[in-house]
Write a protein that binds this DNA or RNA. Structure first.
Lengths: 354, 354
DNA sequence: TTGAAAGCGTTACCAG
DNA sequence: CTGGTAACGCTTTCAA
């Protein structure tokens, strides 16, 4: 039944030539109104769809966006974040006429090899990178090869001459928001459960907490004793929370860099207000207040940025405005075009844990 | 630097003709040893990779496997299951020379439309379906169109003349295993926290529990009062567990159809041994024993089944071995090929909750 | 065993 | 505005 219907079939059916059909599809404004209508009818009647393979041969564009699917984390509680992002990406990409192609890679080197392989075989038009870290070799490589890409996550410690498009969520704003929430509830001893120093994301989130406390008049010298760093995980969080609770001047509230650590803090079963980060399913399940990232929007922004550099700007399907709304272009976006950096704002989901 | 290197470049470099190169790549046995070696060297030296688009035009095969990425669940604790499956699928597919293409769809109708769209445009070679339910229209549609596919999940209530390849994990075996574990630990009042009747997966898991109890000599008439059904979610699980604990003859052990419900049961903080299902990150985090599905294996089996019917069986668009198998019913396909149904065994991960 | 030619379905480039 | 012709890179007959 599913015999391939080609552009010739449509042309014949509509009594026009082959690339009149092509024109109707690709640059409609160049075809006479009446012809256009007839061709469109033929397309619909025959159920015609342009073959991507053939189109790609000619145009060199695959309409494929490649994304690495991350292995489930050690403590995979935060895994759902990537999952939701990926879902949003697939949806936004589809809306823009693109599809998401998955790949895996165990480390950066393997990923570079996969880039090369993928580009040689499937020729994806762009990549979306998700966990960028200090001195990430992937961005450098892609920049060198002039392959379009966008990262979900700001560049941490990348020299400014290596600028590239990115989308991120303002983690510091999130933890500051959480901290203020606890301050407003009357807390004065508000601790922070973070990751070991050196992770861009972690340090940023800690900075938001510190900023909120100091601007509320807390003496900066107090911060050190309210601060605890540990690797991610519920047991680690529980231990760290106990330490903070058993200090001379115990904390009464706790802002956490992740839901995993927050969950651990909750398991102390002590009188303590806790706020996590990422609003994972677990947070909802156990009633943990958490900072929520707008992942669908972030994904949409990634696609928007990509489309901009691929389709050459204003080929925007439907007003995708959240990018403008939340964007805080990094310093100076040279001269032309919209900013290529998008910083989105998280929100706080209050639950019974506060 | 990344200028496309074509098969002609390789041919020139190795001093052979174009499709000698093609032969080396596709049917090496037909080329003389020495020539083969020279061509292989040229391929490596030039970093040649066959363009998938061009290859697809000729062969009609895209080497793409389409999978729907599910939206995060209401209570997304179980979302990570799909995530891990997807990761395994991507990895196994890559190993077999295939890539995973993502799509989304809000309901079955939308998904059928997407099938049609995808097949017209990207022409994936096969689909992997993940949450099949009673009277699933998708399998029927794909069967009709003779599109290769495999489902992760047995067909529930599908007429035997509509047989198709599937992979599943034996849920009943998992809950039976969990139940026996509790029996061995001395429990006699072991309840089951399940989903409302009518879900194939849920009913199957309940059956395992019931079977283990009755074969341990528990009177079947007792089962009713040990059984509780509720929609998925931690709060629901907590409520249901409380009811079971406050009965005349309270349960001392609880086998749950999901980690969400089990987590709820744990939150009762009563003296109770609990075993969940799916071994989600949350189970690990809170020390919940859980039945673990071999998701990487399941994914690998899906790919194996697909590859068999794609690369293996009659490659011709007309004679699909699937179709033949389909007409024989599910029992046993005597003469041709390996089985198209794979049932994997789960394992129990004991933790402090038991 | 190797080489030459055809064609997969599109879009781009030119004439009409 | 419309209609031919070429070309994208590959695999598959078909001859040598």
């Amino acid at each position: 039944m599913a015999d391939k219907v080609t552009i010739d079939d449509v042309a014949r059916y509509a009594n026009v030539s082959r690339q009149t059909v092509s024109n109707v599809l690709n640059s409609p404004e160049v075809v006479r109104e009446e012809t256009r209508r007839r061709v469109r009818e033929a397309v619909k009647a025959l159920g015609y769809r342009a073959s991507q393979a053939a189109r790609q041969m000619r145009t060199g564009r695959s309409r494929l966006i490649a994304v690495r699917i991350e292995p489930a984390q050690e403590d995979g509680i935060n895994g759902s974040v990537f999952d939701r992002f990926l879902h949003g990406l697939t949806e936004s990409a589809a809306r823009a006429g693109y599809r998401v192609l998955l790949y895996t890679a165990d480390d950066h080197d393997a990923e570079l090899a996969t880039f090369d392989d993928l580009l040689g075989v499937y020729e994806p038009d762009a990549f979306v990178l998700t966990s960028t870290d200090y001195g990430d070799p992937r961005t450098t490589w892609l920049l060198e090869q002039r392959i379009p890409f966008v990262t979900f996550g700001r560049p941490w410690g990348v020299p400014p001459d290596q600028d590239y498009p990115w989308v991120d969520v303002d983690g510091a704003a999130g933890t500051a928001m959480a901290t203020r929430h606890l301050l407003d509830a009357g807390h004065r001893r508000i601790g922070f459960l973070g990751w070991p120093e050196g992770s861009g994301v972690g340090d940023d989130r800690r900075a938001g907490w510190a900023r909120a406390l100091t601007s509320a008049g807390i003496d900066p010298s107090e911060l050190a004793e309210l601060d605890s760093r540990t690797t991610d995980g519920a047991p680690e969080g529980e231990a760290a929370a106990h330490a903070l609770l058993d200090a001379d001047r115990p904390v009464t509230g706790l802002v956490c860099v992740s839901d995993s650590l927050a969950l651990g803090a909750l398991q102390t079963r002590r009188r303590l207000s806790v706020i996590g980060f990422d609003d994972t399913p677990v947070a909802r399940a156990v009633g943990l207040a958490s900072v929520s990232q707008p992942l669908a929007e972030a994904a949409a922004s990634c696609v928007a940025l990509l489309i901009h550099s691929l389709d050459g700007g204003s080929n925007d399907a439907r007003g995708r405005t959240n990018a403008d709304a939340a964007e805080r272009g990094s310093a100076d976006t040279p001269s032309e075009g919209p900013p290529t950096h998008v910083l989105l704002q998280p929100s706080l989901v209050p639950r019974k844990s506060v």
